[in-house]
Amino acid sequence: MSVEIEIRFTLNGRPVSARIGPTMKTLTLLREQFGLSGTKYACGEGECGACTIRVDGKTQNSCLMFAADCDGREIVTIEGLKTPAGMNPVQKAFVEHGAVQCGFCMPGMIMQADYLLGNNPQLTRQEAQRGLEGNLCRCTGYTKVLDAVESVARQKCCGQC
């Protein structure tokens, strides 16, 4: 007989609660209980980054994180990046620069890029390459992803170039 735990946390800005099994992963919780299918399963072992979410401001692989650990945390998923005004600048840049092909890895890639740019608004291309090392993409060869990230960094540095 499995035990259920009740957890309460903030999900994309709203307080939520859930009853979960002790071994459930955050990825499953988000996708199956909250219908947030933007966070993707692609490897289940923290190697590909497709399930990247933000936990208390830092990015994590939700496939490795126990759902129980969400308790009391502030969780943001790809669905939470958008504001009523529209997509956030990183999402927009990914669209404008052609960084999206099949797009399956993109929610995770964008979550990670958004986190990197939030930490370092003047991120260089090389830093972006390092920072996105844990996000695999089979379609794009990363070039347009890096173009997109660089363009946001440029906007943040002076808005001119």
Partner: peptide, 14 residues
Amino acid sequence: KKPDAPDKASGKTR
């Protein structure tokens, strides 16, 4: 731009 890119970038694509 790819017409499906905005939904893919916002996690909406099913």
